[in-house]
Design a binder for these strands. Sequence first.
DNA 1: CTTACCTTC
DNA 2: TCTAGAAGGTAAG
Length: 644
Amino acid sequence: MTSSELASWQQQLYTADKALMTMIYTDGSSQLREPVELISKRRVDGSDDSEGKASFILVSILVTNPSGCSSYPLTFPLTNGGLQRASDMAKTFLLNLLDCKITKVCFYAQELMHAILHHYQLIPERGYPSWEVFDPKVASWLLNPDNPPITFSELLDKHLEGRYTMAAAVGLVSNETHLSDLALLDPVMTDLSRKLRQEELWDLFTNIEVKLTPVLSAMEVQGIKVSGETLHEYGGILQRHMAKAEMRCYRAAGHPFQINSHVQLRQVLFEELKLDQQCRGQKLARTNVQNLKSTSEAVLHKLRGIHPLPELVLSFRQLVKMKSTYVDGIVDYITRQGYIHTSWEQTTASSGRLQSANPNIQNIPRQPVDLEEEERSEEQTCSTGHNATALRMREPFVSHDGWTFVAADFQSMELRLLAHLSKDQVLLDIFNQNSAGDIFVQLTCEWLGVIETKVSAAQRDRTKRIVYSVIYGVGPERLAETLGVSKDDAKAFTKSFLGKFKGINSFTHGCIADCQRHGFVRTISRRWRHIKNINSQNFHARAHAERQAVNFVVQGSAADICKLAMINTVHELNRKTHLRARLLVQIHDELLFEVHDEDLSEVKDLLKSVMEETAESCGPRIKFLVPLPVSLSTGKSWGRLQAA
DNA sequence: CTTACCTTC
DNA sequence: TCTAGAAGGTAAG
């Protein structure tokens, strides 16, 4: 591309209607045409590899003029090498294209944006791209969130009833084929747009999902810094505790065995020690499929009074989990530069929630994991400052020098949303009068009769789980199990809880009735989900469907607001160009930012106020009946955040 | 109760 | 040896 060509193409953008875009890989595949054997590979290998494979971006600009519609194909290399000046011009054009207001269409736009941000090293110290690209993948996921398409051809089959098909190509895929694939994007997106409008999903698509895509790409490219040293130290500590726990298990069993093997554990517990015969009071759970004696946590819990082994197995399991998933599993993803670049999946969860993968960073334990204390003195004397009796699995995630983490979380969001959606007067009153204090802490106080400051984080978490269990319709036996009380007590608890909050009951029944009538339910942002078995004859299937329906409305609505909060905060940070802050992680109702120390207090204020106003930006018709307060905490490590 | 991901067997 | 699915753990509500 010469500079005069660049100028003429820039000019074209002013008269163009649309731009169709796709990424071509070095192996000849594209975002629209993935060789079958490479699909899983690219997905598993994650982001690092897909840029390595990215070869060039193919753009087709559509211009409608009196003589009809013309398309102008352009290619932009994404490989290193070649003339610097050409590369600069390609960059200029691509960024202009993405920034300009014409309609842009790309299947899996997030991947394309990721490649561009990565290739041109557009890491946002400040300023996030506000590129808006219509993505058929996102569109079709909104239309049917339970069954999202993975490939473009799947999408063609699924939504477009075979009206469009890709040209067959054997062996090497020519550029001509790529162009004909690309040409399909226009009618396909037009079709999907019509459907989105028809199903009242258009606003959700354009106001939330389309705007979220570049934010997710930027988060992926940005990554989060990880201390490999801390992680390795944790690995060593866990390794030593595992070895001890293993020996204790062998001693209790009388001989060595594979503790993590269900089969061998079943043999030891039930055939050698015959523990199931010693607790004749309660019948023990069976596995679902093969109907064998279960070795699940609940069973081991019941058995722990009669023999030391079950308890020892439980703690061994926990240590193994921590080591394999949260140490070894994370270490594998650390780049040479010391970062984790997780994938943020926009279109995989049917609830509308975001999903982090490779690695999943949303399920790293929040609570410190307790270790046996016997060798406390030894380890504490050689300690590097951490408490040897507990491991904070989020500790290895650290901010840069001169920067601080700011975590902003919506307080008891789903419960507040439930208050809003159900209009339950008692719940509404609680949230409207009492903005200070944590609702679950308060409930725990009432439940256990202790003072507010005496409630531990673990107790609070337990209360939270119980409350949600009851709301979403847990059975009495299951609740009794988690509460550790009798079935009758559990029943009484459920009854008194739902009796206190009458609106909840009418809300759930309303949800179910709606779903039975329409076959689907919607969130506040009109996101929908079809529930197959809502009118099923099968009692079990129907009960499951009913819980799904209620759960979706609440969880999906929370997801809508959290996404909006991401968009709004990033947008506001963009407007204040002097502020240095970047969004790193979303854990459903919590956003983790990294903020330059000098901008800390200003950013904190901004985040709190923007997030607390999120509900107002849901749409003109929605008036929120409860406030959505945000609490902030800060720190240099994710594992040690202090309320702020 | 729901929604997820990941590891082990 | 490989893979699919079951089971079990974690997170978030």
